[in-house]
Structures are given as structure tokens and as C-alpha cells.
Design a protein around this nucleic acid. Structure first.
Lengths: 130, 130
DNA sequence: AGAAAAGTTTACGTTTACGTAAACTTCATG
DNA sequence: CATGAAGTTTACGTAAACGTAAACTTTTCT
């Protein structure tokens, strides 16, 4: 059995590591996305909290709102004993996957355009320098 | 030579087609992203405006701010006569491509996770129903 | 111990991307 | 021609995601 060596972090450490402010981290907690334990007043973050922080930031890069990311967290933690519950969850997952596939297409389209523009610029540059 | 059949649209038509409000379209104009001509007071949109609208909305889906999308438009319209100008533009393009590739990775990561979770749910469902 | 560093709460400020409303003009049409 | 639909400007409101600051309490270092 793995012993899950319980690592812990201070708010400052996490802030530095992810290059965000402590204010932001506390804000995520306010929004219910992270639930650090306390040692007196001081917040103590564990591995799970750190992973969540990482997911929050990735979500942000994808344009997810904090509420959306929160819902995704709920999906992971959700009770998987009811069939109707499960169907609901799977519907949500399917929806998210749909959205993400649309985003994938969008990104690929923009990448293609930018590559075209880049080439265009390169050509213009070559003409000038010749 | 192609005659470029000059099509034009009203603000209402575009709003309906893209399923956004007229308020939004006027806002994009405020931000300098679209420049419809006027017939009296009334805004007249042409093909180029329509394309831009499409790009604006795609940008939004990707989490671009209007300002960012505006900068991309500038890249397309930019003066390509100065070599230093061109280099600056190409740097910006490279940067954007970098960001987008990061997003691509993020999306693929989330898609993989969601697919895993989906399977997980499907398994749980099968256990219940059997 | 005394000062600096790190953490805490509370609260107001800021930006982006519109929503909503008021008050008015223009245009089509029955 | 009036009336209803569509368009216009101006302006204030709003939600999300923090930033910034004040004022205080630990913790940590020397």
C-alpha cells in the first residue's frame, strides 16, 4: 500500500510556484474551489489542493470561468451510485467535450491563418531585403 | 476581373445570423473592431464587416479579449513596407502561435481527462444496471 | 526580545463585455 | 398618415476575477 507521503505547502509557496498572488489563491477558496486545512489561522495546502490549483489555472487558459471549473471538480467528486445521476454527469461531460472540440477547431483555424500571414510577411521581407 | 458583388447587411440581419444582440455589434464598433459605413444614420455592413464579426466571435470562443482580436486585425492590415515593422509583426505572430499551441495542449489534456471520467461513469453505470 | 517577513480579514476599486432603459428618428405599409 | 418595427445615441448598471490597501496578527530570524 502506498503511504501517500503527505506534503504540504504554504500559500506563499504556491503563489510563487504558480506565479499568482496570494490574493488569488484566497479568492479561489472563497469561491469554494480549494479547501485548505488550517493550523491556527494559517492555511495549509496539500497535494490535492495543489493539483486543483493547477487545474484552475489550466481552466483559465481555456477561458473557463471559476464556476465552470468548480462544476468540473464536482463531476469528479460526484456520487456515482444513482443511475440517473450518472446519466446527468455523462451528459455534462459530453457537452464539455463538445465545447472543447469546437475550441480545438477554432484554434486550428486560427493557427492556419496565422501561419499563412507569417509566410506572407516572410515573403514581403524577402522582397525588401533582396 | 472579379466584380466583388457588393453585398450589404443591416445590423439586425447580422445580429440574427450570429445570434448576438445589436448592442454587441455596436459595442464592437465602439472598440474599433468594425467600421460600417453609414447611409444617413443607419449602419451598413459589408462582407468584410461580416467576416470580421465572425472572427471576433471565434476569438471570443478562444478567450481572446476584444483588444487582442483588434491587434490581430491590425496585423492583417499592417503596413508591410518596413523590414523592422515586419519583424515586429512576425514576432507577434510567433507569440500568438505559441499561446495557441499551449491552449491546444491544454484542451487535449482536458479532453483526455474527460474521456477517462466518461468511461469511469459508464463502468459505474454498467455495474448498477447489471 | 525586537524587527522583518509572511499571513489574515475586510472592504473598496478596476476592467471587460455587454444588458437595460430612456428618449428620439427613420422607414415601410396597410 | 399614423403606427409599428427597426435603428440611433446616451448613459447608467452589472458580473467576474481579481488588485490594492489598510490594519492587525503570527512566525521566523538574528
Amino acid at each position: 500500500m502506498s503511504k501517500h507521503t503527505t506534503v504540504s505547502y504554504s500559500i506563499g509557496e504556491l503563489a510563487k510556484e504558480f506565479d499568482i498572488t496570494t490574493r488569488s489563491i484566497r479568492f479561489y477558496e472563497d469561491q469554494g474551489l480549494i479547501l485548505p486545512t488550517r493550523k491556527g489561522q494559517t492555511r495549509i495546502y496539500n497535494q490535492r489542493d495543489k493539483v486543483r490549483l493547477k487545474l484552475i489555472l489550466r481552466g483559465k487558459r481555456l477561458g473557463f470561468s471559476l464556476a465552470e471549473t468548480g462544476r468540473l471538480f464536482e463531476l469528479y467528486d460526484a456520487d456515482k451510485s444513482s443511475a440517473t445521476q450518472l446519466k446527468t454527469i455523462m451528459d455534462l461531460i459530453a457537452q464539455k467535450k463538445n465545447d472543447l472540440n469546437q475550441q480545438l477547431e477554432d484554434i486550428q483555424a486560427v493557427l492556419i491563418e496565422l501561419t499563412g500571414l507569417e509566410k506572407n510577411c516572410q515573403d514581403a521581407l524577402n522582397l525588401i531585403k533582396k
